[in-house]
């Protein structure tokens, strides 16, 4: 399966998962909103152009927004993490070789610790920005932080589960491919 087709299918699946399952979950706690859709952006291939990355993130966020009726609310954090992603990868990847041998970020291609840091940071940034532009103020800062951290925690938990459930093979790139 080519990378393009795989990512298009993922696009659709993540949107459907977020919109029709996670968004339908009744509120568990005031701090917790289950978000996992942005994992799609974290899973996009290494080699993708930065501009294209941001464009894809924007369209992805926007398509989610069309379902939830708040146009632009999720697009903005998606573009933000798409913008930050290459910097973070540049910091976390020790050698250029990994980038060349593996197609997309994952625990196998990066190692557990850098991958966890990568996912954790971007998740936190995403939620922080999302809650910020949703509220447009910090309000009670502890509540704000609690909401961000709670949402981040539940997202990380779901991402961990997703990593366990869908064991991506971390395809080794060969010259043949």
């Amino acid at each position: 399966m080519s990378s393009l087709v795989k990512n298009i299918i993922r696009f659709i699946l993540f949107i459907i998962l977020q919109v029709f399952i996670l968004n339908e979950v009744p509120p568990l706690h005031r701090f917790i909103v289950p978000y996992i859709y942005f994992l799609y952006i974290l899973w996009l291939p290494f080699t993708i152009n930065r501009i294209a990355l941001m464009a894809i993130a924007f369209i992805f966020g926007l398509s989610l927004d069309f379902f939830s009726g708040t146009t632009g609310l999720h697009a903005a954090p998606c573009v933000l993490i798409a913008y930050i992603r290459p910097f973070l990868l540049g910091l976390l990847l020790p050698q250029e070789t990994i980038e060349q041998s593996y197609s997309e970020p994952g625990s196998k291609s990066m190692g557990w610790a850098p991958y966890s840091l990568y996912v954790g940071l971007l998740t936190f940034i995403h939620h922080f920005y999302l809650v910020l532009i949703e509220w447009l103020q910090f309000g009670d800062f502890l509540y704000f932080l609690g909401k961000v951290l709670g949402t981040t925690a539940i997202s990380l938990l779901m991402i961990f589960l997703a990593e366990l459930l869908f064991l991506r093979k971390g395809k080794y790139r060969t010259n043949a491919a």
């Binding site: 146009t71 632009g72 697009a75 573009v79």
Partner: peptide
């Protein structure tokens, strides 16, 4: 700074969309 500028552009665009919808 094309990357950064396009990032800003997309952010602004998102915010504009947001303000128009909410």
């Amino acid at each position: 700074y094309f990357t950064f500028l396009s990032f800003l552009l997309l952010q602004v665009f998102a915010i504009i969309l947001l303000t128009r919808s909410s």
